[in-house]
């Protein structure tokens, strides 16, 4: 467990040794603030869920940037050899990198906490959807990070890893489109069920359903497991 924490902490610190963390946090904060202002100016009753709904889409673009280097860079620089000739298991390396990337998503969410704080301080809002939205974003973040980590483990090229992650998440998003356009269609509903984007809407309304949590947990564990298998495959190739 200590080694997982060690790797996670190293990964998290690495984001802040380059411009990427600062650019992402700045862009994220700017967009979140802009969305907050736009929602605030609407004549309808103030609701937070539209802000977080769009932030999930923004996360789709951020996920490849956060995850693309996780394994691909180690593979291309040769430091993967140092990791796996140290007394570490593939699960320790995978979980360490996953938690490091997920912690960065956690920081992105932390820096937006001032928005609901302002809303509750200067008005009155239902806090259920706020907490639900943060749980949803954490779940989506975990799913995106595990998928991105898996894509990064497949290649030496960070660019390829980034495109694979973005492409995969786009497909996941598109799986939900038919269900949104044809809500009565069973086929569209079935396809949409496999999309990450169909499992956080209820949470953002404040209703955290166990089946959605299990979906995100399963999705995340599936791609972490796949990453471990890819890392193990170096031994036998």
């Amino acid at each position: 467990m200590a080694k997982i924490g060690l790797i996670a902490w190293k990964e998290l610190k690495t984001y802040f040794t380059s411009w990427i963390a600062y650019v992402l946090i700045t862009g994220w904060l700017f967009i979140a603030g802009l969305l907050f202002l736009l929602v605030l100016q609407r004549p309808q009753e103030f609701q937070v869920s539209p802000i977080y709904n769009i932030l999930v889409t923004i996360m789709l673009f951020i996920a490849p940037l956060v995850t693309m280097r996780l394994v691909a860079e180690e593979r291309s620089s040769g430091s993967l050899e140092m990791l796996f000739t140290s007394p570490l298991t593939e699960w320790q390396v995978t979980l360490g990198k996953f938690f490091g990337a997920w912690a960065f998503i956690g920081i992105l969410l932390l820096v937006t906490l001032h928005l609901p704080f302002f809303a509750t301080h200067y008005g009155s809002i239902d806090t259920g959807p706020v907490w639900g939205s943060y749980i949803a974003l954490l779940c989506v973040g975990a799913a995106f990070m595990s998928f991105g980590l898996f894509c990064s483990s497949l290649t030496e090229s960070q660019v390829v890893a980034g495109f694979l992650t973005f492409g995969g998440l786009m497909i996941s998003w598109m799986l939900n489109w038919p269900a949104q356009e044809m809500p009565t269609s069973d086929v569209a509903g079935f396809i949409g069920h496999w999309s990450v984007f169909s499992h956080f809407q209820d949470m953002m309304r404040g209703a955290v359903d166990t089946k959605d949590l299990i979906f995100f947990l399963s999705f995340t564990v599936l791609f972490l497991f796949a990453t471990v298998r890819v890392l193990e495959s170096r031994k036998w190739r």
């Binding site: 690495t14 620089s77 040769g78 430091s79 140092m82």
Partner: peptide
């Protein structure tokens, strides 16, 4: 182990 390509984290 010292591999041929020295495994380093440049940052």
């Amino acid at each position: 182990y010292l591999p041929e390509n020295v495994p380093l984290y440049p940052e």
